[in-house]
């Protein structure tokens, strides 16, 4: 479907090795957390019991889950620190910051989907869907780390913050399991669709693995970034986006 290979001569660097490694490490950590977490949540299910027993019992599963959670926490902290450092020292632009245009882009795209307008929103380096996912993972991640640590250290949390009511433990449990379920569903449905099953990238969006993105996809998905990088104006580019892809 994608014309990437045919337009092979024009490629853009999208991710450096740091981001690629960061993504892959997060894939592994996320998978381990989901597997060990869900098997605790659905402890009565036969698959969960099989899994727990195979991994060496509930204490072992909890140990794996917590250690991996700790790794996830470190990833998250370093990511936020690096992002803050980059923004403060102007190493890169605020490309992930949500702005007014993201909301209008979302509305524009909906209008386009419904056939009200004939062109989709023109996005920059990260479109609103990607920002939604990024902030979902980051904010959700912080919430998971806080609630996870609360559940891991139920007595210490009260020594640290004695004013907290007892019910924060069950509340943290509800939040932890539900937030995890939400994250899992968003990844399983939205992220997997957008990076694998979406007709625009099928069979796989390889940019996070290779670091490169095709010129064609740049023009199609990130026209504003393309214009900024090349200095070209893509006035007619919209034709290529909507019709050229299939006709060409």
């Amino acid at each position: 479907m994608s014309g990437k290979d045919r337009h092979g001569e024009g490629k853009f660097k999208r991710f450096g090795p740091y981001r690629i490694i960061e993504h892959q490490a997060n894939v592994v950590v996320f998978a381990v957390l989901v597997i060990t977490g869900l098997s605790q949540r659905y402890h009565a299910a036969s698959w969960a019991q099989w899994l727990v027993m195979t991994l060496g019992g509930i204490d072992m599963v909890r140990f794996i889950h917590r250690s991996t959670g700790l790794v996830f926490s470190l990833f998250l902290i370093q990511h936020i620190a690096v992002a803050a450092y980059g923004l403060i020292f102007k190493k890169w632009g605020p490309s992930m910051i949500i702005n007014k245009k993201d909301f209008s882009d979302a509305i524009d795209n909906l209008r386009y989907y419904f056939g009200i307008t004939d062109r989709p929103a023109r996005c920059d380096r990260y479109d609103y869907k990607q920002k939604f996912e990024y902030w979902g993972v980051t904010v959700g991640g912080v919430l998971m780390v806080i609630t996870g640590l609360t559940l891991w250290f139920p007595t210490e949390i009260f020594s640290l913050l004695p004013m907290l009511p007892g019910q924060i433990i069950p509340a943290a449990k509800v939040a932890h399991t539900n937030e995890a379920m939400l994250a899992f569903l968003v990844i399983a449905i939205w992220h997997i669709y957008n990076s694998i099953f979406s007709p625009e990238v099928f069979p796989l969006d390889t940019s996070i693995f290779t670091g490169w993105i095709s010129e064609e996809r740049m023009i199609h998905e990130h026209p504003l970034e393309y214009e900024r990088l090349t200095g070209e104006k893509l006035e007619g580019g919209h034709e290529a986006e909507t019709k050229g892809l299939t006709d060409d």
Binding site: P154, S159, Q167, P170
Partner: peptide
């Protein structure tokens, strides 16, 4: 290390 309000964690 359970504090006074720790039993309330069980609702």
């Amino acid at each position: 290390g359970a504090s006074e309000n720790f039993p309330d964690t069980w609702i």
